[in-house]
Amino acid sequence: MGKVVGAFWVPHNPVMYVAPEAPNPTQREAVHAAYAECARRLVELEPTTVIIVGNDHYILFGTQCLPRYLIGTGDIEGALGSLPGLDKLVTQNNEQLAGFIAQHGFDNGFDWAVARSFSVDHAVSIPHHLVVKPAQQALGYELPCIPVYMACAVDPFLSLKRTAELGREIRAAVEAFPADERVVVIGSGGISHWVGTAEMGRVNEGFDREVLAHGVAGDLEALCAYSNEQIIGRAGNGAMEIRNLICALAAVEGGKGEVVGYEAVEPWVTGMGFLAVKPS
């Protein structure tokens, strides 16, 4: 029987790679320290597989097919769209577990879209680069990585309630898996950021800390109570990625979080929040 032993919230901000020196040194060091602390805590959890929950940015999926939620069950490569300093992702999937999660979903009312091979974007490759890869080095073994993508940035959006249900379903599937997997779920994204709009560069720290506080309390009901209009109005179109965070939180039984770090990084156009989630 598998177990979801923890989760994290981490940003996947490509501007960090495009303009690494843009914020002041204190702020950028704090961000990198937060990623490093998440990596350290990931090692402590002694994981055997990581699931990274991210979203497309209108790169992987075009108007011809916009999946609501997708799981990669086969080989993985990436990232699409090169970023300076970000190595091409090299990792293996846990195909048995990924396929099991997909089938468990089909049997329980979750009609996953399945990618039997998948090229990820920065939503997976950045958390992998800054959290999973350092953890692998410390652990001394490779952590298989299962990508999950949810419709956050391109409408029609997945409802927040459904993202929580999907997190619980992932947990149920892991727990039904015959092997003793120790799974960690990384919710990749946000928090406040405006992408491609006139407000780009604005950060709403108040909203970000509110979302983090809900994560600390494990308050999925409060997180799912935001409307799309509230999220976009208060925290920008990029903040729709809180879906990924909700899914990760819901994947942990009675999960409650601890803030690992937060920086409102206007030069990187994002409120960057980090949360470590443990089961109750």
Binding site: V18, R202, W268
Partner: peptide, 11 residues
Amino acid sequence: QQRAAFSAALK
């Protein structure tokens, strides 16, 4: 103000 709230980060 919105133009100012912008960084060299973005090309």
